[in-house]
Nucleic acid binder design. Structure first.
Lengths: 249, 249
DNA sequence: AATAAAAATGCATAAATTTGCGTGTTTGTA
DNA sequence: TACAAACACGCAAATTTATGCATTTTTATT
């Protein structure tokens, strides 16, 4: 493995885990700890990481911003984001909904991934501007202030003109009988159009949404390809989903 | 857990709870109280916290946030924004370009103003979400990362379908002979469409842009209704503009 | 190709940092 | 004043680090 490859690996891992240990990296990358230390020193000299005794940390220890600190269930959402980010392959076209889980996902997309991402969420778009190689297309429309996403017919019609490989979306509730459901009529329509436009549908949802049902239907269960959760994918709660052909991560 | 991780944890907790106790931290972070004390002493020596018997407290120091500190010419831009905000009348439809001056303007729109604002700038849209009564329409398209605005044909064609009372825009340069000019081809086209869509055109520009000329033409001087600047509107530099019927604020 | 120069890597060793604990001192409170 | 909690200090053990040097790999040049 080339030195530069190691450097990219280290940078990505720091973004993903908010820290790295020299000992871990030594095993992972199959080089001596000395080499890792030299790598960390170089990256630190370039001002890309903060080297500390035992490993390294990201530069501005991205103290979750004021708004985010209060985000409910942040830990669970990070677990989901870490699983989901591995689904993304180079060169894909992706649609992302405006959930906070998707925001966490946007933060940890490795820098060597090249993709086109459509989104209608202001915070996600803003976050993605920090990624070096992702092309971002913002879907315009009337802005919903508290959720900081665009909504309305403009959004639905824009999305229906797209063609994407993947879409990542949160959900209000999901079960095998009613499929995916949402409490908001407008959001349910936007998600319908996202699903229609995408080759594969990835649903990001925390445990408490499993087997929950909301007012408006979005899609039957067979339209969902993969559910990414914060708990063990072998949990018996997922048996029914697996029978219907849904992958669980 | 790395020493620095503990430090960040401690700082976070102090901000959140307004105090920390050594005994609590010792349990939380699973290290001895001695270690916690050493941590607190280090952070205190760095001037980040105030160490007291039993724990530590924040030292309230209201430093201006990083984003604001770094904006170039912020003072001038605020002067312009304060003059420009008075132009806005209740119920108007407004288009705003993506300049930092417009961002300052967005921050100080009085909360009793009711208006519809079209913009293609992420920071401006985000700022406006804090206003209670303004309706925001975001103009979608490909996102330009460093400027955090959407660009491209989508933007131009969206704007050309609009009809607005006012538009506020920055400029690359302006003089009476060449009118308004921009260094960027794409931006020049977006601004052309903004002008075509608006009843009145308000140009926000600092002194150094007056009588400057850039590569691409945007509009002849007679299309401009008002120029808002940071200097005295009676300055002789504006004589020519006034003769051509441009109002100076 | 052949070969020299440069860069990267691993190892041994000495130096440094970090941590917990024992000791005795200081502090806050009743 | 009494007394428990919090503290500073020194020390030892464990861990991490820097450094010099030998070996291997990569790169550039003839």
């Amino acid at each position: 493995m080339l030195k530069e490859e190691r450097h990219y690996h280290i940078l990505d891992k720091i973004i993903l885990n908010r820290k790295v240990l020299s000992a871990d990296l030594s095993i992972e990358l199959n080089v001596s700890e000395d080499t890792i230390r030299r790598d960390l020193n170089e990256l630190s000299a370039k001002g890309l990481i903060k080297k500390v005794h035992g490993g390294a940390l990201p530069l501005e220890n991205n103290t979750p911003s004021y708004g985010e600190r209060s985000t409910y269930n942040l830990e669970e959402k990070n677990i989901i984001a870490k699983k989901a980010v591995k689904i993304i392959k180079d060169g894909q076209v992706i649609i992302m909904s405006g959930s906070t889980t998707n925001l966490q996902l946007a933060k940890i997309i490795p820098s060597d991934i090249n993709a086109t991402i459509y989104t209608y969420s202001l915070p996600i778009a803003l976050q993605l501007t920090e990624h070096p190689s992702i092309e971002i297309i913002f879907i315009g429309g009337k802005l919903h202030k508290s959720a900081q996403v665009t909504v309305g017919l403009d959004v639905v019609s824009s999305i229906s003109e797209l063609r994407a490989d993947l879409c990542f979306m949160g959900t209000g509730g999901i079960n095998t009988l009613n499929g995916m459901t949402e409490p908001d009529w407008e959001v349910s329509h936007i998600k319908k159009s996202m699903i229609a436009a995408s080759e594969k549908v990835i649903v990001l949802c925390t445990k408490n949404k499993i087997n929950d049902v909301k007012r408006y239907s979005v899609a039957p269960i067979h339209k969902i390809d993969t559910i990414v959760t914060d708990i063990d994918p072998n949990d018996p709660i997922f048996e029914d989903f697996k029978e219907k052909g849904v992958k669980i991560l």
